[in-house]
């Protein structure tokens, strides 16, 4: 069971959380101005990287806040968790290597 650091509550067991898919996909301000292709892109297209992904988590059985995390999909190792609204943090090569280990 993963150990996940909620930015508000600290480290908690995975059972308290639910995963919310890829992060940093903003809902368009004016969806009706988008073409069908653009809308489909927003709605359906997601990355599935082998390696680091920025993804949303929700501390569903805790403070109930959404937050973002950078995780290596190969190792399930988290680099960092951060509040919604913050930009995706830079990951140093050392951090990336540690997460990939």
């Amino acid at each position: 069971m993963l150990l996940i650091r909620c930015p508000y509550c600290g480290e908690r067991a995975e059972v308290e959380f639910s995963n919310g898919g890829e992060a940093h996909i903003d809902r368009p301000a004016d969806p009706m101005s988008l073409s069908a292709e653009e809308w489909a892109q927003f709605l359906y297209m997601r990355d599935n990287p082998k390696g680091l992904i920025a993804e949303r988590w929700r501390h569903a059985h805790g403070c109930n806040r959404f937050f973002n995390a950078i995780r290596d999909t190969r190792t399930d190792r988290f680099v960092v968790t951060y509040e919604i609204g913050q930009p995706r943090p830079d990951v140093t090569p050392e951090q990336a290597a540690e997460a990939a280990r």
Binding site: S18, G20, D26, R27, R56, R58, A60, N64, R65, F66, I84, G85
Partner: peptide
């Protein structure tokens, strides 16, 4: 409730 919180917390802060 989850879907409402999702939009509220992540899109319409």
């Amino acid at each position: 409730l989850n879907m409402m919180e999702d939009y509220l917390q992540t899109e319409w802060q």
